[in-house]
């Protein structure tokens, strides 16, 4: 068992990062800056891209630090990450693409 002797400071560091990102997201969601809302990129508002990027950063911190995947063996990391990294974007591509062509004009 890899029982590190390091203290708890890293846990609180990750906590503050996650909290800060969440607070930033909520502030953006309430203020809705017009240049982020009115700019459309790849079929959706720019603000949604910002939300998605921030969410992926949060997810990376949770997986790497809290779930400790960053400290596992390289082979284990890829065994766990690859299926998700291949299948999830594929699923999203198929469904969102089909969603676009079933789009019903009101």
């Amino acid at each position: 068992m890899a029982s590190e002797t390091k203290g708890n400071w890293w846990i609180w560091k990750v906590f503050w990062i996650l909290l800060f990102i969440t607070a930033f997201e909520v502030a953006l969601g309430i203020i809705k800056p017009s240049f982020l809302v009115d700019t459309i990129l790849l079929g959706t508002k720019l603000i949604n891209h910002v939300f998605i990027i921030l969410t992926i950063i949060k997810a990376a911190y949770i997986i790497n630090q809290f779930m400790h995947l960053g400290h596992e063996k390289v082979t284990l990391k890829w065994t766990i990450l690859l299926p998700a990294l291949i299948l999830v974007p594929y699923l999203l591509f198929i469904l969102l693409n089909e969603g676009l062509y079933t789009y019903l004009k009101i």
Binding site: A84, V88, L91, Y103
Partner: peptide, 19 residues
């Protein structure tokens, strides 16, 4: 992960269908 991804992707599908 794949189950939840499927749910959220399906949600995205419906949202793109009725934007």
């Amino acid at each position: 992960t794949l189950t939840f991804s499927a749910f959220l992707a399906a949600y995205g599908f419906s949202r793109f269908k009725y934007p």
